[in-house]
Amino acid sequence: MYSFYDEILLRLGLPLEQTTLPRVVLFYNAGVAVEGHKGLLSCSDEEIVFRLGKDKMRISGKGLVVREISDKRLFVRGAIVSVGAVDE
């Protein structure tokens, strides 16, 4: 039996072994769940930047709140406008 993430990997044509990839799940207009982050870099009401492996990712929106942050997971709630990598 496959999990939700396994099924996504299958549909994307990726091998199931690549489960160590960071995952970013966007709940439209409600929040973002990140698994496998490497630390929070900046935090404000309109922008949250965190490290994802060697890259950085930015979540922008309105009324953003870090609901929970642990060594693996990050949960951000708010009206999300965009989630994307930060050009360096």
């Binding site: 630390g39 929070l40 870099l41 900046s42 935090c43 404000s44 009401d45 709140v65 870090v66 609901r67 929970e68 942050i69 642990s70 060594d71």
Partner: peptide
């Protein structure tokens, strides 16, 4: 301390942080 710094400190110690507000 700033939010990212505190978050990183706590995560390194294995502590989950909730409702971080700058």
């Amino acid at each position: 301390g700033k939010a990212p710094f505190v978050g990183k400190l706590m995560n390194l110690a294995g502590i989950t942080v909730f409702n971080v507000r700058k």
